[in-house]
Amino acid sequence: MWGSWVSLLLIASLGLIGSCSAAAVEYDSSAVIINGERKIILSGSIHYPRSTVEMWSDLIQKAKEGGLDTIETYIFWNAHEPRRREYNFTGNLDFVKFFQKVQEAGLHGILRIGASLCGYTIFRISNSGTNNEIFKNEMRTFTTKIVNMAKEAKLFASQGGPIILAQENEYGNVMGPYGEAREIIRSMINTCNGFYCDAFTPNNPKNPKIWTENWTGWFKKWGQKDPHRTAEDLAFSVARFFQQNGVLQNYYMVDLSPT
């Protein structure tokens, strides 16, 4: 969604890069603080199901060589559970292996769990949409499974893994019907998606200013011009975001095609 809002939960500890121990992580309105060192985070999205396992290491390494320190990805519910309670985490759906590759490269990870992947996929259980107990129970079951798998593989930062952030993706797109959850959302770190997020203000002045989707392009609408965003405009948007107290920005997506 154009300029949509999302909710983000900051994990309370951060794994030391390349080790199995944990490091203290905190945040304030102007930095993520790792072992007392103030940092800004440069991230990029790579979606593990959209490439082969054999490509992962190279894609991640190219992102690192391009100056990124973090890799962000969705969890694709419709791919992992194509039929109720029939799960697939093999091949290029092995998100655990993907995050292990991220850590091997010395990078952080951002795990985006959620039923909605915006224009890509949304897993629907009933004809009444998402505001019903059937859907909520199924989503709770799947989300719990993903979190438990990540814990078992020691992927979270508090376990020495690469994942420093976990997100309920694009909750703002469906927040209206979920009134009972609004107070919970206010206690989380809200973030921004869009072409420009320098003017974005977190819902709590103590929270960091985070840009989870810096759109490097856009889809084409029927009959309209090809969307085009110049590299200069993209670079300017990033500079302006950090100039206005930005803490973390994520390129969506990372273009790693051959030149």
Rank of each mutant, 00 (worst) to 15 (best):
A12G: 10
S4N: 14
K62D: 07
I60T: 05
E86F: 15
E170C: 04
G217L: 07
N78G: 08
N245T: 07
F142G: 07
Q249K: 15
F241M: 01
I113W: 00
W215Q: 03
G223V: 01
L59M: 13
A166R: 06
Y196I: 15
K39Y: 02
Y120A: 14
N127T: 14
E65N: 04
T73F: 10
F200R: 04
Q243L: 15
I146L: 11
L256P: 02
M139K: 11
A115L: 14
H80W: 04
I164C: 07
R140K: 11
R85P: 05
A199F: 09
E86H: 13
K225A: 13
Y251F: 04
A23P: 15
F236G: 07
F123H: 10
R85W: 07
M253A: 06
I33L: 00
I184D: 13
Y196M: 11
H228N: 11
A150H: 02
W218P: 03
N214T: 08
I163L: 04
D226H: 08
S4H: 14
I40A: 09
V96F: 02
I163D: 01
K154I: 02
M1V: 08
V25M: 13
E183M: 03
N245C: 06
Y171S: 11
F219K: 02
G106M: 00
I164E: 15
E138K: 11
R83L: 08
K64W: 11
N148E: 09
F98Q: 00
N250G: 06
T144E: 15
L10Q: 09
D58L: 15
L107R: 03
P258E: 00
A150T: 06
V6S: 09
R38F: 00
I185D: 06
K64H: 13
T230M: 01
M55V: 08
P177A: 10
R124Y: 08
E26R: 09
A150R: 04
V25S: 14
I33W: 00
I11P: 12
F242H: 02
M139E: 08
E81P: 09
K62R: 15
L93G: 04
D226M: 13
G66A: 05
R112K: 06
V96Q: 00
C20T: 10
S43D: 13
T52W: 01
F200H: 02
I75H: 02
K225H: 07
Y171F: 15
S7C: 13
Q103A: 15
A79S: 10
F123W: 14
W2Y: 10
T130C: 14
V96A: 03
W222C: 12
R83N: 11
G106Q: 02
A239K: 10
L8A: 08
V25T: 08
R112I: 07
A157N: 09
R240N: 15
N137S: 15
W77M: 04
E213C: 02
H47T: 05
R182D: 10
N35W: 04
F200D: 00
W218G: 14
G109D: 03
E152D: 12
L10S: 09
H80Q: 06
R38T: 01
A150C: 15
L42D: 00
Q167W: 03
V174P: 12
